[in-house]
Every structure is written in C-alpha cells, then in structure tokens.
Amino acid sequence: MFDRKSAIVGAMSPHGCNGADGHRRVRIGEAIGWDLVQIAAFAATSLELESTLRSIFRLDLPTNTGEVLNAGDLRLLKTGSEQYWIVIPDGDDLLRDLVVSVRPDVGAVTSLSHSRTRIVVEGSAARDLLAKGIALDLHTDVFVPGRFAQTGLHHTPVVIYRSGPSRYELFAMRTFALSVWEWLIDASLPFGYEIVAVGRDPLA
C-alpha cells in the first residue's frame, strides 16, 4: 500500500560535474530494494545460534569479523563475534523464516532494513574520495575486495563493503544519510562525479 521512501530521495536527481581535469572519476548512487536483518546471539548461545544459521543456510559461516558470505542474492556479514547482518532483496521471506527458526531464547533477530541507507561509490577516484573521510587503509592488499568494515564517516557510523577493486558500498545511518551524501558529493568535486539514478543495483 505504501511505497518505501529513501532518506536521500530528494538529492537523487541524476546529474554530474566534471572534475578539475575534465573527467568524472566517481559514480555515486543509492541502492534500494533490499532488506537488512541483524541476528545476534546472547552471552551463552553463540554455538547454538551458529548451528541454527548453518542449518538454515546450509553453508559454512564466516569465521572472522569483517568477512562476508555470498550465496546467490543473499549476503551474510559477520559483524561481531556472535552477530551477523544479512542483506537480501526485499520481499524475500527469509526474515519471516528467521524469526520462526531462531528461537527467541537463542538469538535476537532485528530488522534494520529502514535504518540504513546504502550508497554505492565506484570509479578510479573512489578510494581517494573515501580516504578523505574514512580512517582506514583502503589499499587493495589491506582492505581486500569482498570484505567489509564497521567504521566512521563524517562523524557517523558506517559499514563499508568493498564489492570490487574500485567499488564500495556504504551503509550509512538513515537519519544521517543525507548529510553523508552531501559530504560525499562535496568531497567528489575535484575528481568529477556522476550521480546515477536510484535502483536495485544503480551502477550495474
């Protein structure tokens, strides 16, 4: 009945701006149409939760924080020693399944689909752009494509997932998302940028 309205929809008109050298070396867009579920074990239930999740996904879970498991449309991020984030296309029944399968005395299932805004940044200057605000070594040998980190950008918490050598996804707090977006656009000015229309995979 109601359509979902993104936090940065107002800033989303596709346009661009050439950088000092006449090029547009970053592309920025918002990915929509996904859900995010957090699953966390309690102090004494981490093993039990792991085995529950293994039986649901029929896959080995990542062992270290920062590692990601990709299985079809599903992406599972290990966000803590006994905590996971699951990103799935919206409308998927997985959330309902999880609520049913994860017993409330074994784990806490929390929907965070609306809490985060997913901003995709890509291009030859993407790393230089993010290095202006993210105090992480983004060198490809260190922050390997396929990994993610929980860190800060513009004083707000963000999860940064490196989905390719020069492609990053930022999960920014929804209420700060427009501020983070404006910061990114301003920081992109010298590189030149292209704002890409909203979509499930806006830069595809």
Binding site: Q38, A40, A41, F42, A43, A44, T45, D105, G107, A108, T110, S111, L112, S113, H114, S115, R116, M173, R174, T175
Partner: peptide
Amino acid sequence: LQVHVTSVTDE
C-alpha cells in the same frame, strides 16, 4: 544476562 540491545532509532 542473556540479553542483546540494538539501537533502532533510525529504523
């Protein structure tokens, strides 16, 4: 305590 807390202010 078997409890987990998550901020859902933005949710």
